[in-house]
Design a binder for these strands. Structure first.
Lengths: 218, 218
DNA sequence: TTTTGCCTGTTATTTGCTTAACAATGTGCT
DNA sequence: AGCACATTGTTAAGCAAATAACAGGCAAAA
């Protein structure tokens, strides 16, 4: 239990990188590699080897001096930290273009993260299956989330429904929300929220393109 | 020219928030509001008023003491900073589910950011239009990007083609890439790169759900 | 056997950003 | 007029994360 609390203090950015290291390591393993150096991982991720070693130090995993890290072991250690043993059930709320694309994108990628339901208000979609996942009515949110033990929701409804849908999700007992809606939502302390706004990101890229152009014109 | 260099030093996070402030402000303006307080903006974005004021200080915009900020003016100031006067042309590279969803999502949202082309390798898609945007062959990347003066690319090809497609984009003269592929890419210094990995984000949310569960079980 | 070089693991420093603290100022109320 | 107060704008402190610096150790080469 002490150890688990320790992991809780890992930097957010380290958690993100561990997820990425693991995927890279699995590819290496498939290619028949058994050991890997910090600078090799760094090269794949385009970061520095110091950062890799520091992340691995934080999770308490040690490599061997001339052989580097044992890939199989490291994958297991990372999995033990970031995966839930039981697996976490996911719902896609809002089965528009983006919702459906994300469902397809995520489906089967990680066996500890399973998309088990979609939700929408559109009568035509309700009851239908998409990629083997049933689409339910948002009116049945609470019931379905409870019955299927869904903990995580990907929110892809139109922006004007963000707030009310988020409230319903929280009431239904959801423990984490990934909000892809351009409208920020608010959740209680015990619900983990991650927001991502594509328009903002696009505008940011555009801004730095513009800045670079202007620098050139000096 | 001095002023432009000054904007170049704005924190990345401030740029992101400016984009979000602007959208919120436009909605307020539509609702007939003319002035707004920092704490009102903060409430909409779920951040603190201090942060809003600090951001506005950094861009050198001043409000009035008892009336707050003039919404119309502030929108113009932000637009002047983050928008390119000519507008920036965008291409979606990889017209799979995610690519098409993003195209629809972005289309028409911001008139200074126009999606003017899609690219794919699938013969069936090439030459077709999607939402009024033509899908070209990836073989014509360089030609089309040059002819249509495209500066920004949204990369949504399958992961195994990330690297080679990114190289083609760079060779074609693209100045900014938004990589939605789970595989990190590398670009020269003069190309701005922003990467976003949905699987990582999902796993991060799942991790914090798991952590919270375990804390409860103590 | 000694030395060189290449790794890992840890501590220290720096950087970038957020949050806190507070000074300044004009408006409305008494 | 004078006081209380809401609000802005700025400076200072605090925090989280990245980077740098370096100590330790083994393996192969000389």
């Amino acid at each position: 239990m002490k150890i688990k609390n320790y992991y809780k203090n890992l930097p957010h950015k380290t958690i993100e990188r561990l997820s990425q290291y693991r995927r890279a390591l699995m590819i290496c393993l498939d290619n028949g590699k058994t050991h890997i150096f910090s600078h090799e991982i760094a090269n794949i991720q385009h970061i520095t080897s110091v950062q890799v070693r520091r992340d691995l130090m934080l999770i308490g995993y040690s490599g061997t001096l001339r052989k580097g890290y044992n890939i199989q072991d490291l994958i297991e250690v990372i999995s033990h930290i970031i995966d839930d043993e039981e697996g976490i059930k996911v719902a896609v709320v809002g089965m528009g273009n983006l919702g459906r694309a994300l469902m397809k994108y995520v489906r089967g990628k990680r066996h500890k993260l399973e998309v088990v339901a979609g939700f929408d208000t559109n009568e035509e979609k309700i009851g239908k299956e998409y990629k083997g996942v049933t689409c339910y009515s948002i009116d049945d949110l609470e019931k379905v989330i409870d019955e299927l033990n869904i903990k995580l929701a990907i929110l892809t409804v139109p922006a004007k429904y963000s707030t009310e849908t988020a409230e319903k999700l929280v009431d239904a007992g959801i423990k984490g929300i990934l909000n892809y809606t351009p409208k920020p939502i608010r959740v209680p302390e015990d619900v983990y929220l991650e927001e991502y706004d594509m328009i903002t990101t696009l505008e940011k890229v555009a801004f730095y393109i513009k800045m670079h152009q202007e620098k050139e014109g000096e």
